[in-house]
């Protein structure tokens, strides 16, 4: 469950991206992408909002797109590109995108890390859509390299252990 699926560039962004097309903040594993495809047939277009805090916090929450109201307090981290564009000449395209959001104040503490949404067996959380399927979306994180961080508009080093 750890192979990131291919990511499209900037398609479908609804707010200005914080990063050049070559460096993405978010990715999705094939297993999580398959679960998203299944959830989309049940619930329509989807979105993620990364949670924090108690119990099931620090987990990505998946909702029908628009069910969770985002605003100035949130950052749009990017769009997960799921499915295949090609297939049977376009008509059979299964591609769709899933925007990923996070609270702006939380982003300040997370911005030096790349996030991959994966899925594991588990017992749900909050109102996230995958819970009844017996699985739970989960974040795998990777610290950006200095070059990646610079490309995303960050300044200084991302080796946070030496800066704070």
């Amino acid at each position: 469950m750890s192979t990131p699926a291919p990511l499209a560039p900037e398609a479908g962004r609804t707010t200005p991206a914080p990063a050049p097309a070559t460096v993405e903040r978010v990715a999705v594993t094939e297993a999580a992408a398959a679960m998203l495809a299944q959830l989309r047939t049940q619930h329509g277009e989807l979105m993620f909002h990364q949670s924090g805090g108690c119990c099931d916090g620090s987990s990505p929450m998946c909702y029908p797109d628009g069910d969770f109201l985002t605003g100035d307090a949130d950052v749009h981290l990017g769009d997960l590109r799921v499915g295949q564009d090609d297939g049977d000449g376009g008509a059979g395209s299964t591609a769709f995108t899933v925007p990923v959001w996070m609270s702006r104040n939380q982003f300040e503490y997370w911005k030096h890390t790349h996030l991959t949404i994966d899925v594991v067996p588990g017992r749900g959380a909050g109102f996230s859509l995958e819970a009844p399927e017996g699985v739970r979306f989960l974040i795998r994180s990777r610290v950006f390299s200095d070059a990646e961080y610079a490309a995303l508009g960050g300044s200084g080093t991302v080796a946070v252990g030496t800066t704070a």
């Binding site: 909002h49 990364q50 949670s51 924090g52 805090g53 108690c54 119990c55 099931d56 916090g57 620090s58 987990s59 929450m61 909702y63 069910d67 969770f68 109201l69 609270s103 939380q106 959380a125 909050g126 109102f127």
Partner: peptide
């Protein structure tokens, strides 16, 4: 509600 922040916001909504 007792839980995490995203669900907390959703419940407020």
């Amino acid at each position: 509600f007792t839980g995490e922040t995203t669900t907390g916001r959703l419940i407020m909504q």
